[in-house]
Design a protein around this nucleic acid. Structure first.
Lengths: 209, 209
DNA sequence: ATTTTTGAACTGACTGGTCAGTACAGAAAC
DNA sequence: GTTTCTGTACTGACCAGTCAGTTCAAAAAT
């Protein structure tokens, strides 16, 4: 009863090809955008023939959609893991948020191209993969919202906070700070960036000391 | 000494045509992206002939670059105005930041398509207008950094804050929160969104009451 | 053990359509 | 009479998607 470790339907060889295509596509699309990236380029960078792309994916958009799902899946898992870990360690919700900020930074550090591409496509309208994006966005944001809600419930956070909006703002804070870090001062360490964001998060900006 | 209010070299008629083209291009590119938007579409939406586009702009990319400059110019002016106004009213730097958050929200409220497009293009690499974007980004972020630095100098803000990173994070917070507002809960009022962000900015999230 | 067959995976030349940019004569606007 | 715009037609490059053919490892037959 041998079974492939990943997708049930796919042979090991096929799965390897798909992975190569994801990797090629993610960097190219992050750099140039979806429409400006040609299937020929993706195939060439992945080291396969153009036909192979269409053997593995129904179309260019389908390749892109599956790429999105793949990537956000990784992020969501990582955020959830961070939140649960601090809970297990008996930390409060502030610690959970902080751990999630760090998990976000680690993710962006490891997959900067994916993050770039995600941000660039998220708020577009009238596109084929719009619904995929919405689903996938909600998965990630929901983890943050969950922690905020629990914090409100147990009194750690003010009851007056607007959960969805605050969650969006937090995600945005991390996202933009991290992209700027990678784009404009990549020499800085993750710890460095993390502590700057922690400070902002905990309101230790205004007020001396 | 009559003088055109905008570009010195352009007649009033020409300027009006350019404006129509900007407006057509900004919505189309926000929706579809630069590459997926055709010059024919832009011309049609603006109600002019295709030849007119090329009479007024050297190429599609040039049109886009000038659009970027135009839009960020508006934003920068608005942020600067907000900061100076609070200074005139004797407010502290916290008030200045708060006023700039509001100015940012007002801008995004008025020009959502431009904001969308800007975010989508900002972190791309290897594109023709990359340098234009950098210049233009720095103009806007510099205003925020200036206020932060002044606040550190006069003791209102902690000396430990990382000015460029904090500025980026603040911009990101407003940007993402506002885009989410427009995309996913457009019925909410600007005041509503503003107060949620103020609360976050001033650290009134954790700690009850 | 050797040969034959099978089929999933892959290849790359080709096609039909799309689109940026050009050309230009005549009409409007100023 | 000069500037700006129109309308139509055209070109050449580019590109998503197709498909007939190739590869090759493993299964089946001998």
């Amino acid at each position: 009863m041998e079974r492939s470790s990943t997708t049930p339907g796919g042979s090991a060889r096929r799965e390897a090809t798909r992975q190569k295509l994801y990797e090629a596509a993610v960097t190219l699309i992050a750099e140039q955008g979806f429409s400006a990236t040609t299937v020929d380029e993706i195939a060439e960078r992945a080291g396969v023939a153009k036909g192979t792309v269409y053997y593995n994916f129904a179309s260019k958009s389908v390749l892109f959609e599956e790429l999105l799902r793949h990537g956000v899946g990784l992020l969501t898992a990582s955020l959830r893991e961070a939140a649960e870990r601090t809970a297990g360690e008996g930390g409060g919700k502030v610690d959970a948020l902080d751990a999630m900020v760090r998990a976000g930074l680690v993710f962006i550090d490891r997959y900067p191209a994916f993050t770039q591409l995600y941000v660039a496509e998220l708020w577009r309208t009238n596109r084929a993969w719009q619904s995929t994006l919405m689903v996938v966005r909600q998965q990630a944001v929901a983890v943050v919202e969950g922690v905020l809600r629990e914090g409100v419930a147990n009194g750690e956070f003010s009851e007056e906070i607007d959960v969805p909006l605050t969650a969006a703002a937090l995600v945005g804070m991390v996202l933009v700070a991290a992209l700027d870090w990678k784009s404009f001062q990549p020499e800085r360490s993750l710890d460095d960036v993390h502590s700057a964001l922690s400070r902002l998060l905990q309101g230790r900006v205004s007020g001396r000391r």
